[in-house]
Design a protein around this nucleic acid. Structure first.
Length: 259
DNA sequence: ATGTCGAGCAAAGCTCGA
């Protein structure tokens, strides 16, 4: 079983890119972020024709998350992150697929920092921490996949000073990410590549950062213990980032042993 | 400070977010 996460940066604009990658990679489950589409505009019919059932929560212009399942319908278990009933930004969706509980999340970017957007980022991470605590206590296989908008460590940023003030690389969000791991989650990609420096998943459109490999590692799959014990392989489909009309993120995926 | 990209608004370029 393979589960992937992909910040698509506009699911309508990049539907062709998505369908091409689905046909090649054939992931069993896909967590999408930054749909940037209202719910009625989500391309459910095209994805169904490609063999994928879907649940999604969208919004015009910004945010939006979805979970796709190959030859299956994801069973929706949650459509928002608990802890703030006034938060209307679609950044979290959760579903059961083939015995695994899967969440697709899009953490706030938080720039510029300091400021209200950074405060919202930290508050959102605290809400994620509280919910993740409940999920891990359930003892079932859980995958928290998405764009965390955090580089876990300095080595997850290419060697540069130009990102020093970026919200993604500050001590507070890194500490929030570390607190998640301390609950018992496994950072799948890092756990299988403990020494690798260049595990980037995002390259900004500006300043030729793709061509220069000026990337960051922002997209993570966190595994509960019951999921981690089945982990066999993890990777980044880097070449997808170099294609025509590409998202600024590449897909990241894990492969599990069959239960 | 800059860069790129896309969408929205509104009718073409600006503004905003990332």
């Amino acid at each position: 079983m393979r589960i992937a996460t992909f910040n698509i940066n506009g699911v309508v604009k990049r539907l062709g890119n998505l369908l091409d990658w689905l046909a090649e990679a054939k992931p069993d489950v896909v967590c999408l972020q930054e749909l940037k589409a209202a719910d009625p505009d989500f391309p459910a019919a095209a994805l169904a024709a490609a063999g994928y059932g879907a649940v999604w929560r969208g919004q015009r212009t910004w945010n939006g998350v979805a979970i796709l399942a190959r030859d299956a319908e994801p069973i929706l278990t949650r459509e928002a992150l608990p802890g703030d009933g006034d938060d209307r930004q679609p950044r979290y969706i959760e579903a059961a697929v083939n015995g695994v509980l899967v969440a697709s999340l899009y953490a706030p970017n938080g720039n510029p920092q300091p400021g209200p957007k950074f405060d919202y980022k930290l508050a959102w991470m605290a809400r994620l921490h509280a919910h993740a605590e409940e999920l891990i206590a359930a003892g079932v296989p859980v995958v928290l996949a998405g764009d965390y908008n955090v580089t876990p460590e300095p080595r997850d940023v290419y060697p540069t000073r130009s990102y020093d003030d970026n919200a993604l690389n500050q001590p507070e969000p890194r500490a929030a990410y570390a607190r998640l791991l301390a609950q018992g989650w496994t950072d799948a990609l890092r756990s299988l590549n403990p020494e690798e420096e260049q595990l980037y998943t995002f390259w900004d459109y500006r300043r030729n950062r793709w061509e220069r490999n000026g990337g960051m590692r922002l997209d993570h799959l966190l595994l509960s213990p019951a999921a981690a014990e089945r982990l066999e392989e993890a990777g980044v489909d880097r070449e997808v980032r170099g294609r025509e009309n590409a998202s600024d993120h590449a897909p990241v995926w894990v492969r599990f042993a069959e239960a």
